[in-house]
Write a protein that binds this DNA or RNA. Structure first.
Lengths: 203, 203
DNA sequence: TACTGACCAATATTCTAACCTGGTCATGTC
DNA sequence: GACATGACCAGGTTAGAATATTGGTCAGTA
């Protein structure tokens, strides 16, 4: 029980406390006690309570990233991989209240500046994934060369989350698989009726 | 100054007060006074303060809808019309703090149940626009017959707002016209490299 | 050197009393 | 009668003083 490093123990204890009580109500003292150490030691490892929270979110996020990367690193064509990513995300975020609250700013667990900070971290990390996937798609030839990776990843990120949110929000009337199909369909083929697949079609 | 109907005067007065002080701080009494009428009369026209707020949002929304419909009802092909819609939206919502706050739940002007209610109204109304545009697109042949109008409108709504938000959020690093181009590009052509424009490409 | 917990300033909570405001309705006006 | 009004009330909100808690520090211990 005391075999892990103090920092590790602190992160684990902090995670438990934050998950149970939320950012505000969890106290540094309780975290330290739960990690079987003094409050002073807490500050040897983290500059502030907020930093500890960020560390917890980052650790949680890392666990999600493993799944997410697995979903993306398959031999399937890129659009199908994106679909898998959305599915995995909905599943994971459905279970992980802490990540969800930190991303959407659900006030029950976090809010204000901390929530914004952790939301940014998640967004950035997940968008990296999309950038990577898009570049891989270009290499393998399944994504058009002309696609602007930076802005496309931003937009993909938003539609992706729209679908995830529709799934997590029980009051939504958009069935998950329909949303997924549509996402794939639009992202894959666009809206335009096939006519002139040659040059210069937009702007 | 007293030529308009009492209800109209009340809505205008309410709009001024709500815009200036926000939903909570604006008082029914001040609204009535500003409309040059008694507080009791207020309740002849509105069942509650909240209903008056909704009426104000609806009136504001209607003014936006005029512009939005104008942007959509042009002879241009549908994707280009959608682009115009996004541009118009960004412009209008950039100026109209009340609509913006009511849609995004910016707490300065509104929050809680009222904000949710007015957000839903706006979402529904704007999504109708998209549904209409998609159907028109199908008729004129510029939108694929196979796209699912209901779910597509939902997703389009989300990307559209992502672009608008990127524009309104000054800290965003995504230039508006790049975002617009990308939106058009993806929605128009999808991501897939042109290869087999025949059958069964998704799912 | 590595750690700790008593300590402090700042913030949060609780309590109470005064105050305000959404909504009603008896009364007045046309 | 139909319509409009403002005095009135209950419930909720604010203000502010008194109290308790907590993030963060640091002198002291092992």
């Amino acid at each position: 029980m005391t075999t892990t490093s103090p920092r590790q123990r602190l992160i684990e204890a902090a995670e438990q406390q934050f998950r149970r009580f939320g950012y505000r109500r969890a106290t540094v003292e309780d975290v330290a006690r739960a990690a079987d150490t003094g409050k002073g030691s807490f500050y040897l490892h983290f500059a502030s309570k907020e930093d500890a929270y960020v560390a917890v979110v980052e650790a949680s996020l890392e666990r999600f990233m493993v799944k997410a990367e697995a979903a993306l690193h398959t031999p399937a064509p890129v659009p199908q991989r994106l679909r898998a990513l959305v599915a995995v995300t909905a599943e994971h975020y459905g279970d992980d209240e802490l990540l969800r609250a930190s991303l959407f700013g659900e006030a029950a667990l976090v809010d204000g500046a901390v929530a914004r900070r952790t939301a940014d971290i998640q967004r950035a990390r997940i968008r990296e994934l999309l950038v990577e996937a898009l570049q891989a798609g270009k290499l393998e030839g399944s994504v058009r060369e002309t696609v602007d990776v930076a802005s496309t990843s931003t937009l993909l990120f938003e539609v992706g989350w729209a679908v995830v949110r529709a799934e997590l929000d029980s009051s939504s009337d958009l069935p998950f698989d329909v949303a997924l199909d549509t996402l794939n369909d639009i992202v894959g083929l666009g809206l335009i009726a096939r006519a002139a697949p040659e040059e210069g079609a937009s702007k």
